[in-house]
Simulated scan of single mutants.
Amino acid sequence: MAHGGAIQRSRKILLLTWISMVPSTKYLGVTLDRSLTFHEHAKATAQKTQARVSLLKKLAGTGWGANFTTLRTSTLALAFSTAEYAAPAWSHSTHVHKVDVVLNDAMRLISGTLTATPVSNLPILSGIPPAQLRRDAQYAKLAQKHDRDKCLVPAPSAFEGQRLPRRHFATQAAELRPENPPSTLATWITKRWSDQWNSSTTNLKEFIPKPCAKPSGSDLPRKAWVNLNRVRTGVGRTQYFLHKIGAESSPNCACGEIQTMDHVIDDCPIYKSPHGASGLRELDDETICWLNKDLPI
């Protein structure tokens, strides 16, 4: 009887205990919300990644710091690994741009470029495939695993008569599944990246015709590497640019002309490159020596 009374009291306590309603919860490191928009997860991932990018910024500045290989490897290990955790679950959320903003900041660190640099130029200069393409690759890899183990995720037919989840896995995987086996997934990424790059209209293709892990000039010292990328992208701290954003009162160079990037490279009697824009493709000793100078870029 005593045992039965204890059970009755426990039941009464349970009935009087309200289960609190929470807008989101974390499961295996992924924050889930009621509508599976992954807004909170994208926000938390962006904050965590930003903290790691802030640490990476201690490794290099504009004219000093670690070389390209060290920065690229560190960024992949610290920032991208954090940003891509469980990517197949949330990579097609409309809030994924919150993470991409931070990753773009990390790629600017590697390349030494400014905020005004076109985002499409950042992956090619940092030697890292675009963030969405890397996430799609993880999705495609999971799709290949799904092909080997059909019970991994229910097929769309299992939801017949019901509303399908947002972009059901099988539907999305069909769009990304590579034709080749998993061992050639890296080749699949490279091909898609090359196709994206070939379809772009940026002038940077004149200097880097195809994407690779080590773009031309990446073996230069930090100062020369930063100057090279700013010249190639056409975005630097010239007087014209600084005047345009209100940081300087005059757009004129020390020689008296308007100091645009083209003026610095080809026309300025004080700063001009020994071989003009064409020398930036060959990167001979004279051009490298010029890139190591204190240029207004």
Score class of each variant (00 low, 15 high):
Arg163Thr: 12
Trp193Ala: 00
Ser157Cys: 15
Ser35Gln: 11
Ile128Glu: 00
Gly112Asp: 02
Leu15Gln: 13
Thr69Trp: 04
His146Leu: 15
Lys205Met: 05
Gly236Tyr: 00
Val53Arg: 00
His97Trp: 12
Gln259Ile: 00
Tyr240Ala: 04
Thr17Arg: 09
Tyr85Trp: 04
Asp219Tyr: 13
Lys26Gly: 06
Ser194Arg: 14
Ala224His: 01
Tyr139Leu: 12
Ala254Cys: 10
Leu28Asp: 06
Met107Gln: 10
Asp136Met: 12
Ala213Lys: 10
Gly65Cys: 04
Tyr271Phe: 09
Ala254Met: 07
Asn227Ser: 06
Ser183Lys: 12
Leu114Ile: 07
Leu291His: 00
Thr49Arg: 07
Gly279Gln: 08
Ser194Ile: 11
Leu36Val: 07
Gly127Asn: 03
Ala79Pro: 02
Ser199Met: 13
Ile270Met: 01
Arg72Pro: 02
Asp267Arg: 06
Leu76Met: 13
Asn292Pro: 04
Asp267Thr: 07
Gly256Thr: 02
Phe159Pro: 03
Thr201Cys: 12
Lys191Leu: 12
Ala213Trp: 08
Pro209His: 03
Ser199Trp: 09
Ser126Thr: 10
Ala213Ser: 07
Leu122Trp: 01
Asp147His: 14
Ser20Met: 13
Lys205Gln: 08
Arg52Gly: 06
Arg135Tyr: 03
Asp105Leu: 12
Ala106Phe: 01
Ala83Gln: 01
Arg108Tyr: 04
Pro181Trp: 06
Leu32Tyr: 03
Ala2Ser: 11
Arg166Ala: 15
Glu257Ile: 04
Ala2Leu: 11
Ala87Phe: 01
Gln172Val: 11
Cys255His: 02
Leu56Glu: 04
Ser35Val: 08
Ile128Leu: 02
Leu15Ser: 12
Lys98Glu: 12
Ile270Trp: 01
Leu185Asn: 04
Ser81Asn: 09
Asp195Pro: 06
Arg237Ile: 02
Pro129Ile: 03
His92Arg: 14
Trp197Ile: 06
Pro123Asn: 06
Asp195Val: 13
Asp100Ile: 12
Leu291Asn: 02
Arg163Asn: 11
Lys145Phe: 15
His97Met: 10
Ile128Asn: 00
Thr82Gly: 06
Ala137Gly: 01
Thr184Leu: 15
Gly256Ser: 02
Thr69Glu: 07
Gly5Ile: 05
Phe207Val: 02
His243Glu: 05
Val102Gln: 08
Lys141Met: 14
Pro215Val: 02
Pro181Gly: 05
His95Gly: 06
Gln162Lys: 14
Phe159Cys: 03
